[in-house]
Design a protein around this nucleic acid. Sequence first.
DNA 1: AAAATTTGCGTAATCAGTTACGTAATTGTT
DNA 2: AACAATTACGTAACTGATTACGCAAATTTT
Lengths: 160, 160
Amino acid sequence: MDLISELGALAFGSRMKRMSETIMRGGEDIYRFYGVDFQPKWFPLFYYLSQKGEAGIMEIAEGLNISHPAVIQTAKELEKKGFIISKKSTDDARKRNLKISKKGKNLLPQLQKIWEEIKNMNANIIETREHNILEALKEIEDAWSEKSYLERFKEFHKIQ
Amino acid sequence: MDLISELGALAFGSRMKRMSETIMRGGEDIYRFYGVDFQPKWFPLFYYLSQKGEAGIMEIAEGLNISHPAVIQTAKELEKKGFIISKKSTDDARKRNLKISKKGKNLLPQLQKIWEEIKNMNANIIETREHNILEALKEIEDAWSEKSYLERFKEFHKIQ
DNA sequence: AAAATTTGCGTAATCAGTTACGTAATTGTT
DNA sequence: AACAATTACGTAACTGATTACGCAAATTTT
């Protein structure tokens, strides 16, 4: 228990960040364990394309709630690896659509198996705790999307 | 509800990261609201020094569970602002000790008031949910510190 | 006391994301 | 049809953190 953890409510942002890094790092080990040439950071984009088929940069960015340069960057890496391909949209010359390549499709079953196992293990860890972090996370996300932090703060400040 | 959120257990690392960023960004607004010249990222170091008085770089890094270059970087900014000062240790020529400056001490009461309010508000948000995220986070942290992710994964894989 | 190891710190390079800005294509307005 | 506004994408610069590496001081070993 370090100083930050002792702070409870004050520092739970830092704790969440740290936790998420631990999880990401764990992901690398697992792909390596299976000898699969894949990185955790590629997951959101690759998974998105596996579900939606073909999609433009902005659509993906919005769907994944990340910036569009982040999509471009990840796409560059996945394209270099040959796991996805991109081509200009025919009906809108501004758009570039991404989709999973043949090579990517071949990899997909292995990845899906790994994802499934990771998901099961995570679900298992989560469900065997007394407090369910997914439920808790969802409630906090909802609470925050209602009102901005500052707005909420001002209100809270007033009624104190 | 975006794609990532729908993934539940598989992507809760990303969700936590996003949540922590939301919280950090909220912090900025609050300092600005109070007209206080302070950034959320300075909090861990400054708070640490406010509790421990004087401390070396490594001690702080370990206490806060961050890398020592991160401490150096933050210290540089706080020193530039004049909120902390540093001096070579007298009994160990390798060490450089940090402590809060006069100017920093003057700022401290205001900061403490703000921290207290943020803490209260966070506690309020957390406690008025059905599921307590702090409890949940603590359980997950404990679960992960027991065993590495891969270790846990291998075991889980075996018994599946 | 000399040699080897460890510790504390600093710098550089890297990483994964962001914001800011520019350009070209499309859509909306008059 | 011309102009204005918006949208889609790309690049560049920045951010906040990390790992890798090197050096000097302290500590331990022999």
